[in-house]
Amino acid sequence: MHIKHRLAASLVPLCLWAATAPAYAQLAAGQRCAVQSGPQTAALVELYSSEGCSSCPPADQRLNALRKEAGAASLVVPLALHVTYWDQIGWTDPLAQAQFDARQAELLRHQPRHVAYTPQFFVGGTELRSWDTQLPAAIRRINATAAPVNISLSATPGQGGKLLLEANASAPDAQTGGQLYVAISESGIVSTVLRGENRGATLHHDAAVRLWLGPVALAQGRARLRREVNLPASWRPEYLQVVAFVQRADSSAILQAVSTAPCAKGVL
């Protein structure tokens, strides 16, 4: 564990899984991918990591295996957000973004202990310090709760490497307050670290966040985010997923999350 402050010094095409699983439309490669959240709450798992942190690779590996470990019946949406405050130690993480530092700090404002470190896990918006033993149980607890928000999410490819993202959140109770976020993540990333604590290591990253959009506040229990994105040539569309989630307006609690993972060919 590395502390930040120390570093600074069956329907077709719409299918319904089970009562607890999201509905989704899985279309051929190159076509629109659409997903719909289900009645139970999916567990958003956020890992704050860095390629410059020697204790991060085991956490990265754990996140990479999370869907398999949690089991087919589990509803889990993993995201790896790479922070920048390790970059000064000797290795500049190509996946790191300053807005992920800010996201980590935002979550910590609502936690009992306001200490940023890597690797740091949040499940459903709550810090999970004993992630090595408690991740599956934390996911099950969240999955056992009914979701107060519904989310529909679609990714539609366009010409010239464009991707149209559309997310809609709605709550049966119009008084429900929250903020809608959308992210694009990439899996299957392989990186060879040349300097720093992980010098000489070859790292494997899944669910690494490439793009972060939002928040859009719920008004009258509804929110919509629509954005056309130009995908950089270095991003591999077949390994991309889109994630949408709603966070409570007055806390870090995640009300619902959904991803395009059921669309097996990525987003293009």
Rank of each mutant, 00 (worst) to 15 (best):
residue 178 G to S: 09
residue 144 A to M: 02
residue 97 Q to H: 14
residue 46 E to F: 10
residue 131 W to I: 04
residue 76 V to N: 03
residue 138 A to F: 03
residue 227 R to V: 04
residue 212 W to H: 13
residue 211 L to N: 05
residue 30 G to K: 03
residue 16 L to R: 10
residue 160 G to A: 05
residue 173 D to H: 04
residue 214 G to R: 08
residue 154 S to C: 02
residue 49 S to H: 08
residue 80 A to N: 14
residue 128 L to P: 05
residue 242 V to K: 03
residue 228 E to I: 05
residue 243 V to N: 10
residue 176 T to W: 08
residue 199 R to D: 04
residue 238 E to H: 11
residue 5 H to A: 15
residue 262 P to H: 11
residue 80 A to K: 11
residue 40 Q to K: 15
residue 220 Q to A: 14
residue 58 P to D: 06
residue 166 E to C: 03
residue 9 A to C: 06
residue 5 H to R: 14
residue 201 A to F: 08
residue 78 P to Q: 06
residue 200 G to H: 10
residue 213 L to S: 06
residue 152 S to I: 07
residue 168 N to A: 12
residue 184 I to R: 09
residue 186 E to C: 06
residue 194 L to N: 11
residue 164 L to G: 02
residue 54 S to Q: 06
residue 207 A to Q: 11
residue 203 L to T: 02
residue 20 T to G: 11
residue 181 Y to C: 06
residue 249 A to D: 09
residue 99 Q to C: 11
residue 51 E to I: 02
residue 161 G to R: 05
residue 242 V to N: 05
residue 253 A to H: 12
residue 149 V to N: 00
residue 172 P to F: 12
residue 228 E to K: 06
residue 122 F to G: 11
residue 210 R to W: 05
residue 242 V to T: 10
residue 144 A to P: 00
residue 86 W to G: 07
residue 11 L to N: 12
residue 140 R to C: 06
residue 251 S to V: 04
residue 138 A to D: 03
residue 109 R to L: 15
residue 55 S to E: 11
residue 127 E to L: 15
residue 233 A to Q: 14
residue 73 A to Y: 02
residue 150 N to A: 14
residue 108 L to P: 01
residue 155 A to S: 09
residue 169 A to V: 07
residue 64 N to W: 09
residue 137 A to P: 04
residue 126 T to Q: 15
residue 168 N to S: 06
residue 236 R to S: 10
residue 253 A to I: 07
residue 263 C to H: 07
residue 167 A to V: 07
residue 32 R to N: 08
residue 79 L to D: 01
residue 121 F to W: 15
residue 229 V to D: 00
residue 71 G to H: 10
residue 54 S to D: 11
residue 107 L to D: 10
residue 219 A to I: 02
residue 201 A to C: 01
residue 154 S to P: 00
residue 85 Y to Q: 01
residue 167 A to E: 02
residue 266 G to S: 02
residue 115 V to Q: 12
residue 245 F to K: 02
residue 110 H to G: 05
residue 106 E to I: 00
residue 97 Q to E: 12
residue 229 V to R: 01
residue 198 N to M: 00
residue 29 A to Y: 08
residue 11 L to R: 13
residue 217 A to N: 14
residue 76 V to I: 06
residue 235 W to Q: 05
residue 180 L to H: 03
residue 25 A to N: 06
residue 92 T to W: 00
residue 66 L to H: 07
residue 80 A to E: 13
residue 64 N to M: 07
residue 21 A to F: 07
residue 30 G to Q: 05
residue 154 S to W: 03
residue 38 G to V: 05
residue 29 A to V: 10
residue 236 R to K: 12
residue 243 V to E: 06
residue 224 R to E: 07
residue 217 A to P: 04
residue 265 K to I: 00
residue 148 P to S: 08
residue 84 T to R: 11
residue 189 I to P: 01
residue 134 Q to T: 14
